[in-house]
Computed example of a mutant assay.
Amino acid sequence: MSDLLDLQQVSAGYGEAIVITRIDLRLQPGESLAVLGRNGTGKTTLLNTIIGVTRHRGGTIALAGRNVTGLRPDMRALAGIGWVPQERNIFKSLTVEENLTAVARHGLWTVSRVYEMFPRLKERRANMGNQLSGGEQQMLAIARALVLNPKLLLLDEPTEGLAPIIVDELLAALKRIIRDEGMSAIVVEQHAQKVLGVTDSAVILDRGTIVHAGSSRSLIENPAPLEQHLGVTARKTPRRAANH
């Protein structure tokens, strides 16, 4: 099976600054990947490089066998990359339904289908984007990417700043989209525990390079790399005071 996404020795950044260096990354059709790391390690830059909004400094990016390294972001989107940035980028002056119909392309993911995935959006379909809560705006941002019917979905910190109950609802939806529907996805997330149950594999970035790659399950079962690179430690039972 040919790779859906193939990054070979990719380096990129902003202006004169190089943020990610010599990244090798491959993703199969239907595979999902978590990108983990502390703040400032290059996670968002990696997604920005795949969509084409950074300064390319070396290497190649191929999507479904097509070299997209030199393509503009809009052309990469047309080639099949759906992007949900941290800023969400919804149209706040349009209704929920207008946000979806304005960008929808023919395919399996229709407006009706995303309403089934996100019932809150169906309830709010006549509301303007600026009338939605933060969690609803994030759902709309994901729904907008889905109705583009992409080959690959990129999500940058999708749970950031959301209430715990909304995080649980959003992660459940993402699990259905990725696991049940087979959507290929790369999810950037600072908090590993939130995303490892959703994705097939994971990489950890540190100082712009991949320092660990493996299955999500292996990281759940053996969190030593998380402890080493993210400072995530297992909860320990307090020691009882000795009786004297």
Rank of each mutant, 00 (worst) to 15 (best):
Phe91Pro: 00
Phe91Asn: 01
Ser93Ile: 03
Ser93Gln: 13
Leu94Thr: 05
Thr95Met: 05
Val96Trp: 00
Val96Lys: 01
Glu97Ile: 11
Glu97Cys: 02
Asn99Lys: 07
Asn99Leu: 07
Ala102Val: 07
Val103Ala: 03
Ala104Cys: 10
Arg105Met: 11
His106Ser: 15
His106Trp: 07
Gly107Lys: 11
Gly107Asp: 11
Trp109Gly: 02
Val111Asn: 06
Val114Ser: 05
Glu116Arg: 14
Met117Thr: 15
Met117Lys: 12
Phe118Cys: 04
Phe118Pro: 02
Arg120Lys: 13
Glu123Ala: 15
Glu123Leu: 14
Glu123Gly: 10
Arg124Ala: 07
Asn127Ile: 00
Asn127Cys: 12
Met128Glu: 10
Met128Ala: 09
Met128Phe: 15
Asn130Ala: 08
Gln131Thr: 07
Leu132Gly: 01
Ser133Leu: 12
Gly134Arg: 03
Glu136Phe: 00
Glu136Met: 03
Gln137Lys: 08
Gln137Ile: 06
Gln138Ile: 06
Leu140Ile: 07
Ala141Pro: 04
Ile142Phe: 09
Arg144Ala: 05
Ala145Cys: 14
Val147Ala: 02
Val147Gln: 00
Val147Thr: 03
Val147Ser: 00
Asn149Arg: 12
Pro150Cys: 13
Lys151His: 15
Leu152Gly: 08
Leu152Tyr: 08
Leu153Trp: 07
Leu154Ser: 08
Leu155Asp: 06
Leu155Pro: 03
Glu157Asn: 10
Glu157Ala: 10
Glu157His: 11
Pro158Leu: 06
Glu160Gln: 14
Gly161Glu: 11
Gly161Ala: 12
Gly161Met: 12
Gly161Tyr: 12
Leu162Ile: 07
Ala163Lys: 05
Ala163Pro: 04
Ala163Asn: 05
Ala163Cys: 09
Pro164Gln: 14
Ile165Glu: 14
Asp168Arg: 15
Glu169Cys: 05
Leu170Val: 11
Ala172Phe: 08
Ala172Gly: 10
Ala173Asp: 06
Ile177Trp: 04
Ile177Phe: 08
Arg179Trp: 07
Asp180Ile: 09
Gly182Gln: 09
Met183Gly: 01
Met183Phe: 05
Ser184Ala: 15
Ala185Gln: 04
Ala185Gly: 09
Ala185Asp: 01
Val187Phe: 02
Glu189Val: 06
Gln190Thr: 12
His191Asp: 12
His191Ile: 09
Ala192Val: 02
Lys194Gly: 02
Lys194Tyr: 06
Val195Lys: 01
Val195Glu: 04
Val195Leu: 10
Val195Gln: 02
Gly197His: 03
Ser201Pro: 04
Ala202Thr: 08
Val203His: 05
Ile204Tyr: 05
Ile204Glu: 06
Leu205Pro: 00
Asp206Pro: 02
Asp206Ala: 14
Arg207Val: 10
Gly208Val: 03
Thr209Tyr: 03
Thr209Glu: 14
Thr209Gln: 15
Thr209Gly: 10
Val211Tyr: 08
Val211Asp: 06
Ser215Lys: 10
Ser216Arg: 01
Leu219Gly: 00
Ile220Glu: 07
Glu221Lys: 09
Asn222Leu: 06
Asn222Glu: 12
Ala224Tyr: 13
Pro225Lys: 12
Pro225Leu: 10
Glu227Leu: 07
